[in-house]
Design a binder for these strands. Structure first.
Lengths: 170, 170
DNA sequence: TTCGAGCTATACAAATTATGTCTACCGCGT
DNA sequence: ACGCGGTAGACATAATTTGTATAGCTCGAA
């Protein structure tokens, strides 16, 4: 799909350095054809990010719902789907565009993180039954964000996250 | 060092998309300062590639010299040092610049691969004693180049290479 | 204290590259 | 034969990048 090609290209080069030409090439269509589908680079970016967020949220829901597996394993995988996939240049450029045009990227960039927190909180609450679930969830999310800034590889991110989750789910 | 920062930046964005500004930022110097050290982007690129090739050749020599370890393991590691590190965009852009300005990148881009072939050949010959060593070495190198084009990750490259080397060193 | 090496910060012209748009056209299913 | 969903190519305009120039700062040696 065109949006997948777009996201891949944006993730690889960052928003600024990803040219419409390159996205078009990755999607095997012409550049005017790309403009036929999305009337500007920003709109394309918005669509690609939106799709990715929706897909990631869906993946997180799916992972967490599989209550047969132990909670820590599900949490690690959920965070990996949500954040681990984007270790690298993309994150920075998402933030860049969001800050440059406040509110332009659509509400999803606000609602999706809230939904993610909700899902994590619920998964923890169901398992542990504790009232501390919201605090644990929020702490995990903060840890994840911190790791994302420290990590240069997904492996590093996952390794540290695993430790953090083990500590937080005792 | 500046050349390390340059190579990292070139590897990440490719020759064209890596701006001098970015290299300078990665090296923690100013852009005019970078031009003070290297008078053009091409010269910087040449210097960075040259250094990398020399370092890689040295690493290959070191790995292969450790005759205590089994030959296949040494070979896999040697190829990893030589090529596996550069799975991704850099290779394509090296080729691009080399073709654009024939002979500009210096003789190292010619001599280093020859030296690499020599090292691989010798390592195989010493161990197996066969006269077939040159053929085996050349085949391995061709396989490696092929894999480099197929592979999107270092893991994929190494996995396939390992199999190929096992087959070729029987 | 002065000097020069090795930079930084700022600015600039020229070249290159990217965006967004337009026109003409093509293949294909109906 | 027609319209849909594009392609190919060209274009004006804007943004980015290169390479250079200027002035100034800092630090260590003379």
């Amino acid at each position: 799909m065109v949006l997948d090609a777009a996201l891949t290209t944006f993730a690889r080069f960052g928003y600024r350095k990803a040219s419409m030409e390159e996205v078009a090439r990755a999607a095997h269509i012409s550049r005017p054809g790309l403009y036929f589908l999305f009337s500007s680079k920003e709109e394309l970016f918005r669509a690609a990010v939106t799709q990715a967020l929706e897909r990631d949220i869906a993946a997180v829901e799916r992972v967490l719902a599989d209550t047969g597996r132990p909670l820590p394993k599900r949490l690690v995988e959920a965070f990996d789907q949500w954040a681990g996939r984007y270790i690298g240049p993309l994150t920075r450029d998402v933030a860049e565009v969001v800050e440059a045009n406040p509110g332009l990227l659509g509400e999803i960039v606000e609602t999706a993180p809230r939904r993610f927190e909700e899902l994590i909180t619920d998964a923890i609450a169901v398992e542990t039954g504790r009232a501390a679930a919201p605090d644990v969830a929020r702490t995990m999310i903060s840890t994840s964000i911190g790791l994302k800034h420290q990590a240069s590889s997904r492996e590093f991110y996952l390794e540290r996250l695993k430790v953090a989750i083990a500590l937080l789910t005792r």
